Structures are given as structure tokens and as C-alpha cells.
Simulated assay, not measured.
Amino acid sequence: MSIRPLASASRALAVLGTAALAVAGFAGSSPASASPTHFGVKPLHGHTTAAATATSGSTLSVGSSASQGVVSPTPKVYLVFWGSQWKNDPAGVAPDMQAMFKGLYGTQDTWGTILDQYCEGVAKGTVTCGSKGTHVQHPTSSPLAGVWFDNAAAAPGSATAAQIGAEAVKAAGHFGNKTQAPNLNAQYVVLSATGTHPDGFPNSGFCAWHDKTSSSYGTLAYTNMPYVPDTGIDGCTTLTDGRALSGIESTETHEYAETVTDFWPSIGWNGGNGEIGDACVNMDSFVKLSTGSFDLQGLWSNAANNCVTKG
């Protein structure tokens, strides 16, 4: 599991203030509950864990010679807005996430082309795929494959990791992905509503994380995506643009890319500083797509031997 910890925590707290945190329900939120087995921790800026730094030691190598579960060759994203609490979306997260994924394809999306150098079905330890293996394919149409507002009942106020995984399984059933085959490319982004505390957020020191879970539909890849704007303006991003949505855009692009390149963590692509996004937590860029401009986090490129925001 890769955790994308909060950025700009001090700025977020300064913006919200103690009173605002109490109004949001944070004063009583649970302490850190993230499992120590989580992979690729992206630290909270200003938190107790230092942020990863891009170096030559960040070079990614593949952790398995398997031909499935290593990467997601043709990524498909399913957005799951969990719980009746989504009737309240003060920052406009739901339309923003949909617009971002509707634009992450084609020639205008040069950020996504960073991913197509990575592959599966090659020898463990490979760092350059070349023409070998099955590569990630840059989408020629939107990777957004489905949107579900699961609002028949309220989501747990403080969902556990197991409950988040169970919601991903429920989503797979909802979307009709009931065998392993479609779930070799599907990633389920479980988005929690404002004021909720999935896996201890925000006091657990992360912005989001991704993982896998076993089910009757096969092994599923999913993301725990809290309501990042609750951390305040400029939370979970290194940009200081005053946008409430920049942090969640940066966070979700981090998790999306890490899921694509380490689909069932951690048999995919990892390096000395973790997964593809972990070495690049200090790089955010406001990028124009066909559906608008969004804060996309930089990713590690073996080809460039550096963090980059375009392939």
C-alpha cells in the first residue's frame, strides 16, 4: 500500500484554525491507524516523517516476473463516492475528480505518458523494459470507466481499512466486474465525504493510500481517498495557489500513477524511495488538460533519471 501523506500541514492548520477543525469534526478524529505494512509512504510535510528526495537511488525496478498484477496495462478508473454524506460537497470534489480523469488521455495529456515506459512480464529486477513485456498503454480515451454515488446509507464516520476495502469489492459488483479479468485493469477510488475520517484521516499523517484486497471477484486494486480539502487550502500539495482542489488533484494523481505501476503492491515498480510518486512528493505542477487545468504531481521516470511532469 502506498500512502500519500499530507503536504503543507502547517499551512492547512493555519488556514482552518482549531475552531474550524472542531467544526469539521477533526477534534475527535481517531489517532494514526495506518498499518505499518503500508508501502511507499509519502510523508506529511512538516509532520514527523521526512519527505522522500529524488536521487539516482529512486530508480525503479520491477519486483516480480509475473505477467499480471504488476502494472495496469490499460488503466480504468472507477470513482466511488461513498455514503449519503456526499450530499454535502463544499469544495466541489465530485465534479472536479470526474473532469480530471476525463482529461487524462490523448495528445494533450503528456503527464500520463510518463507511465508507458513501465511494463510487466519481464525478469524481476528489470529497470528498462525497452520493447519487452506488456507496457502500460497511454489511454486514447478517458480512463474514467464509471462513477457511483453509493448514497443509500451513510458511510462510517471513521472507516477502517477493511471497511474501505469492502466498499471497493461492493463497487466491483456494482459495475459488473465480477471476475478477475476486468479487475486486472480496474482501480476503485473510494472517496470519503467531508467531515469523515477514513483510516484515521487527517491525524494518521497521510493524504491517501492505495492497496489491494482479495474477493470473490479476484484481487482488486483500490484507493482510500479522504476529503483532502478538509485539510485546508494548499493541504497535500506543494503549490500555494489558494485552490481548495489542488491538494486532492495532486494526491489522486499520485495514487493513480502508483496503482498503474504497482497494481498489486508491492510486486510492481519500486525503488529506493518507494513507488513512482514517492520520490517526487515535492514536485507539483498546474497542467492544462482538455477538460481544465489541474494540479498533477511529478513522477519518477527511469528514462529521464529524474522526477518529471511530462513524458
Rank of each mutant, 00 (worst) to 15 (best):
Q85D: 14
H38V: 13
S35H: 04
L21Q: 13
S10T: 07
T59F: 07
P31Q: 14
V15H: 15
G17Y: 09
P75L: 11
V77L: 14
P43Y: 01
A9T: 08
A14M: 05
A9H: 01
V62E: 04
A22L: 00
V80P: 00
A52M: 04
V62A: 08
L44N: 03
S84R: 15
L60R: 07
S65P: 05
T53C: 02
L21E: 13
P75C: 03
Q85I: 05
A24G: 04
P73N: 08
A32F: 03
G69L: 00
V70S: 03
Y78D: 09
F26Y: 13
V77T: 13
Q68A: 14
A22M: 03
A20Q: 12
V41M: 03
S64E: 09
S35D: 14
S30G: 11
T18H: 08
P31E: 15
A32V: 09
A24N: 10
V23A: 13
A50D: 13
W82Y: 15
Q68N: 14
S65D: 14
A51R: 12
S33Y: 00
Q68L: 09
S61Y: 07
P43R: 00
A9G: 00
V15R: 10
G83E: 04
H38K: 10
H47K: 02
K87Q: 10
A51N: 14
P90F: 11
V41I: 06
K87S: 15
T55P: 00
S64N: 13
N88A: 09
A50C: 05
K87C: 00
V41Y: 12
P75M: 12
W82S: 14
A91P: 02
G57K: 15
T18M: 09
V70Y: 03
A27M: 01
K87H: 10
G17F: 08
A24C: 00
G17C: 11
F81S: 07
A34R: 01
S10Y: 00
A34Y: 06
S33K: 12
A22W: 00
S29D: 12
A20V: 11
H38Q: 06
S67E: 05
A14W: 04
A54Y: 13
S30Q: 13
G25E: 02
S56N: 12
V23S: 08
G69W: 06
P75F: 06
R11F: 03
S56G: 08
F26G: 01
S56M: 10
F26E: 05
T18K: 07
P90K: 09
S72E: 04
P31M: 11
V77R: 09
T53G: 07
